[in-house]
Design a protein around this nucleic acid. Structure first.
Lengths: 233, 233
DNA sequence: ATCATTATTATGTATATACATATTATGTCA
DNA sequence: TGACATAATATGTATATACATAATAATGAT
């Protein structure tokens, strides 16, 4: 049965992962070539190749042409966070989602923003601030600056029914993004909006999005310090 | 030239990404089937398949058998953080790495730890605390509990030259892990160790690692609030 | 010996083909 | 009409084959 069992790349990948986990293939060791493994697993080289490539992408193997494949010495394993829109995030956790628009105006952007986006100092941008609530309790304070040149149509949006977050997701694509996580202390304004004490810790996610050569938006998403971002790997 | 240009799945993937970004393929829309695309790009279906699968994995496409492929409506794009060992992280940033062992003893683990790992309350575990420095300045305070049943050989390790982090990476594999990010205020002890003021914000990464059915270790990695985790996508 | 050139080799990718599988659409019978 | 079996279909995967590419090893000329 095992001899002629269906040899899917999943099974092969799993078996190879096991060998790595159980040190049959030790860290740093060179593992057999694709041809050899294909014979061992009695499958096509392409199948082995796919399994190996996925493991390499996961960071447990390091592959180099001609040099061969070896077990990663320092498994810089990648943690993958899925970043959904806030509404989904809240609803997935079983909360009731609401949001409150705090302000929506065209203003001169502060230098911190224009600099990050590579725009001219003092540029007029759309500044939208809103609060996302889960079960009527503050969940995330969103402070967003939008480049009007990139998304001119946003100028006439009122954000009465749809949050800027969601509006942008469905109206403005992006091709590149930079995400930063860090911790900070709540300022008095932030604290008041989030309903926490000033000088409490907050968890901040900053996101910059671009189209090639065109900055679109800079958001600071501020969570109370109790917020937890979880991922499995 | 374009007609007979080499049609790699990379190019095809890029072109499809462009179409999605520029709304040629709108969010939620059904895109052509693999066969059709293969004809359009004049390549094999397998090549189109690979491009589509990678885009689906990135979260911009949603595929379902028989139903076809459509552009994700709410692109829950995944952010991928590579989590290297601290030493590498510091050295990559051009800093000089050092670490200081703060304590290393077998103790009864607090309930917060045993509970998270699914171990018996009051279990004896190895408790190792150390400080990682970048250019002689505190970078990360590592507070770790290790399940001695899973890694008995760690008992006799002194961690004089190699940090517990690195020791475990090279001596104990894991197959599953859970990672949590959050923000908090520094306690007096943490503040002193990290050289920051008590009640300053700190950025905390918690990691639990397991082998199937066997908890290995629980670590709290505490950074000064100024720490930033960055990723591109 | 040193350096440039060439062969070798392991991985990377493309292709045609075949079959598997999940899901939807269809049709049949009660 | 509704329940259930059946066909149709798009994606998913496996395979043999061929060639591309990167990196190393071997070779030869100076």
């Amino acid at each position: 049965m095992t001899a002629n069992a269906r040899k899917s790349f999943h099974a092969i990948k799993a078996e190879m992962a096991r060998r790595i986990a159980e040190r049959v293939w030790a860290p740093g060791a060179l593992i057999p070539g694709e041809e050899v493994l294909a014979v061992e697993f009695s499958c096509a080289r392409a199948t082995v190749n796919r399994a190996l490539q996925e493991l390499a992408r996961g960071g447990v193997l390091v592959r180099k042409r001609k040099a061969g494949t070896r077990v990663a010495l320092h498994p810089m394993r990648e943690a993958r966070f899925v970043i959904p829109i806030v509404r989904q995030e809240i609803e997935n956790k079983g909360g009731i989602y609401q949001f409150r628009l705090l302000s929506n105006a065209v203003e001169k952007a502060p230098q911190a923003v224009t600099k990050r986006l590579g725009l001219a100092k003092g540029k007029e941008m759309l500044h939208v601030r809103c609060l996302h609530l889960s079960d009527s309790r503050p969940y995330q304070y969103e402070d967003r600056w939008v480049n009007l040149d990139a998304v001119p149509s946003i100028r006439h949006e009122t954000f009465e029914t749809v949050s800027p977050n969601e509006w942008l997701v469905t109206h403005s694509p992006f091709s590149q993004a930079e995400i930063v996580f860090h911790a900070d202390l709540a300022g008095t304004e932030e604290a008041e909006i989030l309903g926490v004490n000033a000088k409490d810790s907050v968890f901040i996610i900053e996101r910059l999005t671009y189209l090639p050569q065109k900055p679109i938006t800079f958001v600071r998403m501020i969570h109370p310090g109790s917020h937890r971002m979880v991922t499995q790997l």
